[in-house]
Amino acid sequence: MLELRLVQGSLLKKVLESIKDLVNDANFDCSSSGFSLQAMDSSHVALVALLLRSEGFEHYRCDRNMSMGMNLGNMSKMLRCAGNDDIITIKADDGSDTVTFMFESPTQDKISDFEMKLMDIDSEHLGIPEAEYQSIVTMPSAEFARICKDLSGIGDTVVISVTKEGVKFSTRGDIGTANIVCRQNTTVDKPEEATVINMSEPVSLTFALRYMNSFTKATTLSNTVTISLSSELPVVVEYKIAEMGYIRFYLAPKIEE
């Protein structure tokens, strides 16, 4: 038996909107510690890891570990039927081939339930090693989204370079080149407006902008984004989910031919 009641149902709606175009089908894993997902995009270039900790739910019952295969497009269609202020409860019985999403309006005057068919998904679960990153940049998520969108009008790839001067986003295309440098800026009124660079070694890596732009659909989940870079590793683009967990996108770099 599984029953998860999320008062801030909009978080789940936003999570789905941010991953449904990247991943078609995924297994949601439910254990006593939380509700999580790990899935690769169909070309195995990017990976998304989601964690919603059990403490973030108003009510969290998961009698035994469960893995529920869902089509994210279909799940998104159902969650779109929930109001932004609705409380969302996810329910499933042991061994059932369906999951139920229940939506309650804040005033309890409208209660809906949607039952969705589960599917068997044979997905490869990858071990993500703990890593010390050479450069970690935290910046306003809206600023990062703006940069990715702007650069994708000019080129297909972005070179992210971190030095002690700042973080530089560069692209090159048929019409010309672009460089955007964000300097460390911690003297702002609000902490979420700061750009903070923690660098142990300078790093420069190239990534496909198409994926970066897809990751920025999670911008609504957090005011800040953390970009972790190491020369030998995929980049991690992390959006914290208030008091609940995170959504992390891993993207393999492009290398010179």
Binding site: H44, L47, L126, G127, P234, A252, K254, I255
Partner: peptide
């Protein structure tokens, strides 16, 4: 424009 690496080249099957 460079070779796109796969994520599976970095993370092993768990």
């Amino acid at each position: 424009k460079g070779v796109q690496l796969n994520i599976t080249e970095f993370f092993r099957s768990a």
